[in-house]
Every structure is written in structure tokens, then in C-alpha cells.
């Protein structure tokens, strides 16, 4: 057991706007504390990767960022998450609205298998009770953003389940983008994909960075090194180190980060 820090770890003054910020964020599942006093900035139009061994709290962390953590029975959190400087936990804040601004892509591609590709893209909007003025144009636009348009432009009426795993994941990204989020959370988006599909998603992440702020949780250190601008290392619910990815992967300052990323797990 690593003793909790008396002071929060130093966070870099980011050379950019802080889109989101966790401030002294802690989270519990019942009696079990999953996150301990996390303070972490998420810089706008940058990719922040969260790495750490299983059970370190990285998924819990990003699920706090769009208030999905509290959906789990018995789960609660303390501390603050700021989105554009305003708390997402405020009494007047609608969690559904938060989840629209802070979208999420999950580990396993989860399109609606029987629903057509087009309807899958628009599903999020429909569930939110929104009818876009030109659904076909919107579908094309977000499918292009998700680098899926060329694959599916002639298959828009096919069921989502007919696509390959990599295509399904990009479809889920398109579905997320259709809601025009400002932040996209990705919880191990490539862990069930082959290397080609993974490379496509990673390429996509680079492009999406222009328009969105991205937070990606990944088990693959190499992936974090490839896609992220900033990397945060979590260990048993604590933020051990946060720095530019270049620094984390060449000269991390905390020995626990060093041990983890070099493969010295003890």
C-alpha cells in the first residue's frame, strides 16, 4: 500500500486552455475507495491518456468526468469536476446534458446490431429527443469525421451488426460525435480490435483532436505513447504522475511510473 500523498502531485501549467479539470476528486464503490484525491487538468484540443494497471481507477476516473460513475448503485464521489470552469456536479446541472457535452466511447463496440448504420449514427440524437434538420447530411458528416464514410457510404441501410469490429467501433465514435460533444472520453477503444483497425482509430484520434478534447484510457503503453499529448499514470486510485507524453515515456520522474511503463511490475 502506497501512503497517500500529503499534497496533490504537481500538475503542469498547460500551454493551452483547460477544457476540464478534476479537483480533489475521490470516488467510492460502497465502502471501497476507487479514487483518491485526483487533481488533473484536461487541456483543450489535446489528447490526454490515462494509464495504469487494472483496478487503478482509470475507468472510474473517466466515468466521473461525465457523471456515469454515480449511475452504479452504491457509487459516489467527492471533489470537483469542472467543465469550462463550471462544476458538473452543481445542483442545477442536468447529468444528461453533461453526457452530451462529454461523450463516451466504450471498450467493446456496442452499436445496435439490428439497427441500420444510418440509424445507429442518429440513435443518440433520437434518444435525446432531437430531430436534426437534415439527418442524412449529419450522418454523412459525422461518418466522415469518424473516417468511416468511405467504408459504409453504400451500406447505410445495412444493420450495424454487419460491420467489422473496427468499423463498429468507428460507428460508435460517429454516434458519439453526432451529439456534438466537446469532450470525447474513450475507455480502451481499441482493446478488442486488430492492429489495422487500431491504427485507423489512432489516426482518427489525431484528427479528432482538432475539434474535440480527448481523454483515452488504455492498457497499452505503446498506444498511450503514440496518441497522447499528455499522459497521467494512476496507481491504486492515486494519480502518481502527470506530464507531457514525451517526458513520461523518456524520463518519468516517479519511480513507480518508471517501473510500470518499463514492465517492472514486481
Amino acid at each position: 500500500m502506497i501512503p497517500p500523498r500529503s499534497t496533490p502531485p504537481p500538475s503542469l501549467p498547460p500551454p493551452g486552455v483547460e477544457k476540464m479539470r478534476a479537483e480533489g476528486l475521490s470516488a467510492w464503490f460502497g465502502q471501497k475507495r476507487a479514487l483518491k484525491d485526483i487533481t488533473l487538468p484536461l487541456v483543450e484540443h489535446k489528447v490526454t491518456a490515462v494509464i495504469g494497471p487494472s483496478g487503478c481507477g482509470k475507468s472510474t476516473f473517466i466515468r466521473c468526468l461525465n457523471r456515469m460513475h454515480e449511475v452504479v448503485p452504491g457509487a459516489r464521489s467527492e471533489g470537483q469536476v469542472l467543465l469550462d470552469g463550471a462544476s458538473i456536479f452543481g445542483r442545477e446541472v442536468d447529468p444528461v446534458r453533461v453526457r452530451r457535452r462529454v461523450g463516451m466511447v466504450f471498450q467493446k463496440p456496442n452499436p445496435f446490431p439490428a439497427m441500420s448504420v444510418r440509424d445507429n449514427v442518429l440513435a443518440g440524437l433520437r434518444l435525446s429527443g432531437i430531430t436534426p434538420p437534415d439527418p442524412n447530411r449529419l450522418a454523412e458528416e459525422v461518418l466522415r469525421q469518424a473516417a468511416l464514410w468511405d467504408d459504409v457510404k453504400d451500406a447505410l441501410d445495412l444493420p450495424g451488426g454487419a460491420l467489422s469490429g473496427g468499423q463498429q467501433q468507428r460507428l460508435c465514435i460517429a454516434r458519439c460525435l453526432a451529439l456534438e460533444p466537446e469532450v470525447v472520453l474513450m475507455d480502451e477503444p481499441c482493446s478488442s480490435l486488430d492492429p489495422v483497425a487500431t491504427a485507423k482509430i489512432e489516426d482518427l484520434i489525431h484528427e479528432l483532436r482538432e475539434r474535440y478534447t480527448i481523454v483515452i484510457v488504455t492498457h497499452s503503453m505503446q498506444q498511450a505513447a503514440r496518441v497522447s499529448d499528455y499522459t497521467a499514470f494512476f496507481y491504486v486510485g492515486e494519480l502518481v504522475e502527470y506530464d507531457e507524453a514525451d517526458v513520461i515515456f523518456t524520463k518519468p520522474s516517479d519511480p513507480r511510473t518508471e517501473d510500470y511503463i518499463t514492465g517492472r511490475f514486481g
Partner: peptide, 10 residues
Amino acid sequence: RRQPVASDLR
């Protein structure tokens, strides 16, 4: 084959 990082990379 190992894709070394940090101290191993150095």
C-alpha cells in the same frame, strides 16, 4: 520486439 521506454530506452 520490446519497444523499450524511459530508462530502458535511454
